[in-house]
Design a protein around this nucleic acid. Structure first.
Lengths: 194, 194
DNA sequence: TCATTAAACGGAGGATATCTCCGTTTAATA
DNA sequence: TATTAAACGGAGATATCCTCCGTTTAATGA
C-alpha cells in the first residue's frame, strides 16, 4: 500500500474558515441589534461577505448562530477582565469592567430572550456563561480587596445584581446612561472607609 | 336627509367573528405547544378551519396572536379560581387551583419567552396578567384563612414562588409530576396547626 | 319573510425568507 | 508544482408570510 491517506488526522484547518466564522458572528451581532432576533440570515451572510451556504455550514440553525454571538460576547467580557487586571489598578480595572458589563447587558437582552424561545434547554445554554462571568468579577473584586481598595465585606454578586436590576427596569431609553452613573456610585460605595 | 347610516354605532357584532377568533386561539395554543413559537401561521389558520386572511384580520402579527393565547390562559386561570371558590371547600379550591396553575406554567414557558423576544415592551405585556393571577390566589388564600383551614401567616406569594421555582428548575421531563406532588406538600404545610 | 348592507370570510398569489445542492475555488501538504 | 480535501458561493427549490379583493353571510328593518 502506498501513502493512502497521508495522515487524515493531521491537516491544519484552513485559515479562511475561522476568519469567515468570525466575520459572520460580527455581522450577526450587528444585525440582531439593529433588526431584532429575526434578522434575515441571508442578509447576515451578505453583510459578512460570504455566501448563504457558508453561513449555514458554520451555523446550521438560527439558534446556533445566536449561541455563538452570545458566547463570543461572554468570552470577550472574561478576556477584558483579564486584560484590565493586567494593565490597570485594581479599582480602575473593576470600574472599567463594570462599564463594559453594562454594554454587554444591552447586547444580551435581545439575544437571551430569543435563545430562551428557541433553545432546546435554555438553562443549559446559559449555565456555563453565568459561571464565567461570576468567576471574572469575583477575581476582580478579590484583587481590589487584597490591595485594600475595596471593603472586605463586599459580595461581588451585589454589584452584578444592581447593574442587572437597572437594566431590567430599563423603562427609559437612556437606561445605559443611568447604569453608567450607577457604576460610579457603586465603586465609590464599595471603597474601604479610608 | 333620509336614513343615511341607519345607526352605524349600534349593529351587533357578527357571531361568527367571535367564534372564529376563539377557534384560532385554540388552534394556536396547540400549535405553539407542539411546534414552538415559530409554528406556521398559515397552518394554524388551516387547523382552525379558517382562511389565512381571517387569521391576519384578527391578529395582525404573531405577537398579537401570542398575546391573545397568553391572556386567554390567564383569564381561564382567574375564572377557574372563581368557580372553585363557588363550588369547593376553601382548601379543595386552593388545591385545585394550584394544580391548574402548574399546567398553566407549562403552557406559559414557551409563550412567555417568545413574547419577550417579540414584544415592544415585555414588561407592560405581562403586568396586567401578574396582577390578575396575584389577585386570584390572594382571594383563595384569604378565604381559606377565614375558615381557619390555613395558617394566618401564610403569604400567598410563597406558594406561587414555590411552584414557579420547581417549574424553572424543570431539569427532568417529569417536572409536572413533581410539581403536583409539591402542591400536596404545600397544602399540608399550610394548614393550621389544628 | 325578504331585500339590503356592512361586516366578515377565504384563499390565490406576490413578496420574502429559509436552506440545500453542487460545481468551483483555494489552502495545506508533499 | 501537483494533488486533494476542505471550504466556498449563490442559484433556486421550498416554505412562510401577508395582502388583496371577489364572495358569502349575519344583522336589520320594512
Amino acid at each position: 500500500m502506498e501513502k493512502k491517506q497521508s495522515q487524515s488526522v493531521g491537516r491544519k484547518p484552513r485559515a479562511d474558515a475561522q476568519q469567515n466564522r468570525e466575520k459572520i458572528i460580527e455581522a450577526a451581532k450587528e444585525a440582531f441589534r439593529k433588526s431584532g432576533a429575526n434578522a434575515s440570515l441571508d442578509d447576515i451572510a451578505k453583510q459578512a461577505g460570504v455566501g448563504a451556504g457558508t453561513l449555514y455550514r458554520h451555523f446550521p440553525s438560527r439558534e446556533e448562530l445566536l449561541k455563538a454571538v452570545y458566547h463570543t460576547a461572554v468570552q470577550k467580557l472574561a478576556d477584558a477582565g483579564q486584560k484590565f487586571s493586567d494593565t490597570l489598578s485594581p479599582l480602575d480595572a473593576l470600574r472599567a469592567w463594570m462599564l463594559l458589563f453594562v454594554d454587554y447587558i444591552a447586547e444580551k437582552q435581545i439575544i437571551a430572550s430569543a435563545l430562551s424561545a428557541l433553545a432546546e434547554d435554555p438553562k443549559k445554554t446559559f449555565e456555563a456563561s453565568y459561571a464565567q462571568i461570576w468567576e471574572t468579577i469575583r477575581s476582580l473584586v478579590r484583587r481590589a480587596i487584597e490591595t485594600g481598595d475595596i471593603r472586605e465585606d463586599l459580595d461581588p454578586i451585589d454589584l452584578l445584581r444592581a447593574l442587572i436590576g437597572v437594566a431590567s427596569i430599563s423603562t427609559s431609553p437612556d437606561w445605559q446612561e443611568s447604569a453608567k452613573r450607577l457604576v460610579d456610585i457603586l465603586i465609590t460605595g464599595s471603597q474601604s472607609d479610608k
